[in-house]
């Protein structure tokens, strides 16, 4: 899987600058609810929550796609596992968010462990196809799950409780819980990608042959990253179900998986901040453009083409170009 070109992946320098960008994004997000209330536009909070949910999902994908050069085309399956963990457990009377997250993480990790162990035997385009196939298997499983609405999905009776408290009932509560988890996901992945483990993972992206020639066997590291990535995406699924108060197989269709890759490419792969920015911007554009016109996809397509032409490194590559993302040396 070494076909990922260098222009697509960011050099490992510039870490401190990226950290600053991330902090700025978190600070901006933190003032969204009061701002939305002041402007009399509470709908903004809902949109921002969706933006952050997909930012968590995109961050998780960036671990394997950006840092591991494992282009998974089935990552939306884990959004589904997370969502259905909420639907199934709340139907069984377990409405606590923490328990639902544990279930989502376990289910996602298990599915990733099994399908990853098989998928990672392949390379390049075959890996893309096999992850797509596993993702679609999960999708069709829930489509045929008639007890939970099948194709139509199922509405939740209520949002999850947090240790017995109705923290998520209001949009603002859900917003801040999501923001907290976004920050946690970013911080965790930031540390992980710089750790010994992350070094082996990115090293394998750069050259698997080189890593083997110094004594590593890449597979266990790649599989571990694959499982961690799935688990984080499962958490995003739990939040997505709570945000919509509704769960549907549509969350895990291959369109969604493709959209997640688009978010990464738009933001710039392999830098975490790029994934986060890409997801925030994509969802914001979707919502924003959809208001202007039914043909918003056309506008979004144009923006993608422009970014691809102007900056192969995505939005964060664009920032670098204009010297906005440089390390203070």
């Amino acid at each position: 899987m070494t076909y990922m070109t260098q222009t697509l992946t960011e050099p490992r320098a510039g870490l401190a600058a990226r950290l600053k960008l991330a902090l700025a994004i978190f600070a901006l997000l933190a003032v969204v609810p009061p701002l939305a209330h002041a402007m009399g536009e509470p709908f903004m909070i809902i949109i921002a929550t969706r933006m952050m949910v997909f930012a968590i999902a995109a961050l998780s994908l960036d671990l394997i796609l950006g840092h591991g050069a494992m282009v998974s085309f089935g990552h939306a399956a884990y959004l589904g596992f997370g969502s259905y963990a909420v639907a199934i457990l709340s139907r069984a009377g377990i409405s606590d968010l923490v328990l639902q997250m544990v279930a989502a993480v376990l289910a996602s990790a298990l599915f990733a462990l099994v399908t990853g162990a098989i998928s990672l035997r392949t390379r390049g385009v075959y890996f893309i196809m096999i992850t797509l196939a596993f993702g679609q298997m999960a999708y069709f499983f829930f489509v045929s799950f008639s007890a939970l609405g099948g194709d139509d999905g199922v509405a939740l009776a209520a949002r999850s409780t947090v240790l017995g408290l109705p923290l998520l009932q209001g949009e603002t509560g859900l917003f801040y819980v999501t923001l907290g988890l976004l920050i946690a996901a970013f911080a965790g992945l930031y540390l992980l990608t710089r750790s010994r483990f992350g070094r082996v993972l990115t090293g394998t992206r750069e050259s698997a042959l080189r890593m083997q020639a110094i004594g590593f066997r890449p597979l266990p590291y790649q599989l571990t990253a694959y499982v961690i990535s799935a688990a984080i995406c499962g958490v995003a699924g739990v939040l997505l179900a709570n945000q919509a108060v509704y769960v549907s197989p549509a969350y895990m269709s291959w369109h969604r998986s493709g959209e997640m890759i688009v978010m990464l490419v738009l933001g710039g792969v392999g830098s975490l901040t790029g994934a986060m920015t890409g997801a925030l911007v994509t969802v914001a554009l979707e919502e924003g453009l959809a208001r202007f016109s039914e043909h918003w996809r056309l506008g979004f397509g144009l923006i993608l083409v422009l970014v691809a032409l102007l900056s192969p490194g995505g939005l964060s590559g664009l920032l670098r170009k204009f010297n906005l993302l440089r390390d203070d040396k």
């Binding site: 540390l191 010994r196 750069e206 110094i214 004594g215 571990t224």
Partner: peptide, 28 residues
């Protein structure tokens, strides 16, 4: 490893024989 620094290219080879690489938090 083209996007690694020169030092990191060598340090990762040292890492391969010095302790576990399943360490997730401390910056290498």
């Amino acid at each position: 490893l083209p996007s690694f620094t020169v030092l990191e290219n060598v340090a990762v080879a040292v890492q391969a024989r010095e302790g576990s690489s399943f360490r997730f938090f401390r910056p290498a």
